[in-house]
Simulated assay, not measured.
Amino acid sequence: MRVAFVGKGGSGKTTLSALFSRRLARSGAQVLAIDGDINQHLAEALAPDADGSEAPPLGAHLTELKDFLRGTNPRIPSAEAMIKTTPPGHGSRLLRLLGDDEVHARHVRRVGGVPLMVTGEFGESDLGVACYHSKLGAVELYLGHLVDGPGEYVVVDMTAGADAFASGLFARFDLTFLVTEPTLRGVSVYRQYRDHAREFGIRIAVIGNKVTGEDDLLFLKEHVGDDLLTHLDHSPWVRSAEQGRAEPDLEALEPQNLSALTIMREAVDAHPKDWPALHRHAVDFHLRNARAWADAATGRNLVGQVDPDFVPGPAALN
């Protein structure tokens, strides 16, 4: 299952992405965390004392990624003809989660016991000439060519605010967790997400965070309603961890917060993956991009990259 964490900057989405990923990994589940935020802090959240070494970022190797994924697909003659929304078809190379392939071998490292991929930072050379979504295109292509199975999880820490809806990446997930503080600004971001998500049939679940008492919880229930899945209390353990002082064992987290992580996993597991819907969204956003800018930018009719006979999901591996 693919899970996104979104929310207002400072809401705690990166911290919750890390906690959720660590809890999954501790349970023995196969999990991959991906840092898709312009502020690359997921590695630090997974392990504050991690060394500075890292695998090469996906965003810096987009051409190589395209070349690998297009495989022998006759509809994609070159990496230059492939854009971030190009869907797989017959001949494309499909990926299994943490499989034995060059993408995972090159771009994954373990941090805090969790396999991690990063998109890469927005560097000085990008200023004024590129947007961060050009780097996120690598994550979009990765998820578009991934065939994940039962008991496998991809957890993506997304960009903050409604900017997460600026590309088709937001439609690549089975469930999106919207992390919301009990404040007016926090719930205003929730309303933006809710409206965008409803337009495209995207499933969201709200996670209240930094709750300090019954008044905070009642505030969230009043403004979020049935979309509120669970909440986490303000956590001294998390604050200590961020200061490098906490007991490293995640089971030392406060009981309410451990319970919330369990509820979140149950929510993910409760819904079977809808391969046709994921592929339908992928094709829809590809056609939108082709007509809006990509046909003109590449000088090609990219509508022709859609393989009408391609069946997404496990069947495609055969």
Rank of each mutant, 00 (worst) to 15 (best):
Q243T: 13
S53Y: 00
R239H: 15
L136C: 05
P182R: 05
D249W: 00
I38T: 15
V6D: 03
D295N: 15
T15V: 13
D227S: 10
V129L: 04
I83V: 14
A79T: 06
L261V: 08
D148V: 11
E242P: 03
E214V: 14
G144E: 06
R291E: 15
H234Q: 13
D233T: 13
G151N: 10
G91R: 05
T86M: 02
P87T: 09
A18I: 07
P56R: 06
V3K: 01
V206P: 03
H90D: 10
A45K: 00
S27A: 13
R291P: 00
S125F: 12
V211T: 13
R198D: 09
R75L: 13
R70T: 05
R70A: 02
T86D: 03
L178C: 15
V129Q: 11
D174V: 04
K135F: 04
V206H: 01
L69N: 06
A296T: 14
H145N: 07
G137C: 03
Q305R: 04
R110Q: 14
T119H: 03
F310K: 11
D163A: 15
H231W: 15
L169K: 09
A29H: 02
E44D: 13
E140G: 07
S167N: 12
R191N: 14
E121W: 00
N289F: 08
V155G: 06
I38F: 05
A18P: 06
E44C: 08
A160W: 05
L127H: 03
F165I: 10
L116T: 00
V111Q: 01
G59S: 13
T72L: 11
V3I: 15
R198E: 12
L217F: 03
Q256G: 13
G99W: 02
L250E: 07
D269P: 04
L143R: 12
L232R: 01
P74C: 08
S17R: 00
E102I: 11
V3F: 01
A277W: 09
S235Y: 01
A252R: 15
F200W: 14
I207P: 08
F165R: 07
K273N: 02
V311E: 10
P248F: 04
L229K: 03
T63I: 15
A241Q: 13
